[in-house]
């Protein structure tokens, strides 16, 4: 589904990713772990199409039959979203004056049009959304509040997963979705993600801690350090990291220092 080859990314003159190779197949859950500053969030943002990052080398292929072999990186963020990529933000934006329901409906209808489906009318849309709200244990009043405005940290993260549940992406990238969540909120969010597991859908979990992986069990775990994947393994690797920290995996060379701000 996703093939990342030798991806190099800089912000200004500063290299952040220094040759990432990653294959994600449909139905798989991948965890990308690593210390702060290792480039995890950059990878997530670059896949979603955030501006301000320079891709200096490498390629990303995604669902080549759908995108006719086009490099994902050539697509605008909204085109990627319509092609089924979803990024759950580490810091979801507050958008005063725009109701959650407006965002969800505009987003869903853009995605549906791309998929060759008709736009949903207000009633059908509400039915769809209500079933997803229940999944995340969210009240209907969330729909009529301004997007993330005045939401608690946990509410913002649940709102991200709600958007994901409504849009039903092929590839979901969750950027530090566990950060700032208490254990109950973490379970709710994990439950929402697990409910969306599907043989045609892949999930990339970007996380600093192993904690989330107790609830969403990954098929593959990758450790990112110094802008490269320095180790890959199964779920056991995450447990090992929990015991031993990241130090033993970080390359001895000075490259990491250069990568850090």
């Amino acid at each position: 589904m996703l093939e990342i080859r030798n991806l190099h990314v800089s912000i200004g003159d500063r290299p952040i990713l220094a040759g990432i190779d990653l294959d994600v197949k449909a139905g798989e859950v991948h965890a990308i772990m690593g210390p702060n500053g290792s480039g995890k969030s950059t990878l997530a943002q670059v896949l979603a199409g955030r501006e301000g990052y320079a891709v200096t080398a490498g390629s990303v292929r995604y669902l080549d039959r759908d995108l006719v072999g086009q490099d994902l990186l050539a697509l605008a963020p909204e085109q990627r979203a319509r092609a089924g990529i979803f990024l759950a933000f580490q810091y979801p934006l507050e958008i005063p004056g725009v109701a959650n329901v407006q965002l969800l409906r505009s987003a869903l209808n853009s995605v549906r049009l791309q998929r060759g489906e008709s736009e949903l009318d207000a009633m059908d849309f509400l039915d769809t959304v209500k079933s997803k709200l229940a999944l995340l244990d969210m009240d209907e009043s969330f729909l009529y509040r301004a997007v993330n405005e005045g939401f608690s940290g946990g509410e913002k993260k649940r709102n991200e997963i709600l958007q994901m549940a409504v849009l039903e992406p092929r590839l979901a990238i969750l950027d530090e979705t566990d950060s700032g969540l208490d254990i109950d909120a973490l379970k709710t969010v994990a439950h929402g993600v697990n409910a969306l597991k599907h043989p045609e859908r892949a999930v990339i979990l970007v996380t600093h801690y192993q904690r989330l992986l107790n609830y969403i069990v990954p098929d593959h775990v990758h450790v990112l350090a110094g802008g490269r994947i320095v180790r890959s393994g199964d779920a056991g690797l995450a447990l090992e990291l929990e015991d031993r920290g990241y130090g033993w995996l970080i390359p001895e060379s000075g490259s990491l220092e250069e990568m850090r701000p």
Binding site: E78, A81, F86, L87
Partner: peptide, 14 residues
Amino acid sequence: EAQVFYLRSRGIAA
């Protein structure tokens, strides 16, 4: 522009 990107990442045209 961060808000614009957030909405675009949901499939909404710029």
